[in-house]
Design a protein around this nucleic acid. Structure first.
Lengths: 112, 112
DNA sequence: ACAATAGTTAAGTAATTACTTCAGTGTTTG
DNA sequence: CAAACACTGAAGTAATTACTTAACTATTGT
């Protein structure tokens, strides 16, 4: 499920906006209300709610409403999806570079 | 430089498209020409070139033209930017959860 | 009860995105 | 030299994005 391309689309897309990253950054320090998320951002509350919807749709954030305040938190396992995709790519190319290094070393050996 | 928000925007945005991720995936297995990148994708060569431009602008891929073929490679250090941002967030929230765990443990201790 | 607070929803708009087709530019190959 | 190849760039279009304002719904404090 973490590898569903559509899920990765939503996640990377969600992270591709500075306002949304700022919200995730704030939430990684602890839960916050919508207004608290909005406070450092130079935009209307409405816009923040829309960013929040994007974050929730991506699975990066979840929230719950109690009384009139909605409290938001990050969903740790979601970020792992993005992290994992990046790690896989890095491993693939690092293994390739290792093999290339081996090949070059062998080539050099056989020069002697 | 890896923390420039605009750079992160470009990187995450670049990764937020399945065609572009497929290209990065292909390139993590080794260099490829534009046509080779295009081959598995159900779109015009022109569209692929446009995706390639996005990837180059993001710093994830670089390329060089020799004769009539352009050869593309991933730029390993760029992906680290995205990886690093994600790691920082995870560390922040994991530390917080640790402190929370400590607090709960202490609270439980003081119950005795 | 009334006002202030916290958020939600809808509608509108300007900018950006992800394509398309078509008309090129150089580069090899026969 | 001519045809095939590997792109490249411009222009157009439909869909999506990131906002805005304004009107509205609950909840809480006085």
């Amino acid at each position: 499920m973490l590898h569903d391309p559509a899920q990765l689309d939503l996640m990377f897309q969600a992270l591709a906006d500075p306002a949304r990253r700022s919200m995730v950054e704030r939430l990684s320090r602890g839960p916050a209300s919508v207004s608290q998320l909005a406070e450092p951002l130079a935009m209307s509350l409405s816009a923040v709610v829309q960013h929040l919807n994007v974050l929730e749709a991506s699975g990066l954030v979840r929230s719950e409403k109690l009384g009139r305040v909605r409290t938001c938190q990050i969903a740790p396992q979601a970020l792992r999806g993005a992290e994992h995709w990046i790690n896989e790519r890095r491993l693939t190319w690092e293994r390739r570079l290792d093999r290339l290094g081996d090949f070059l070393a062998e080539t050099k050996d056989s020069e002697n």
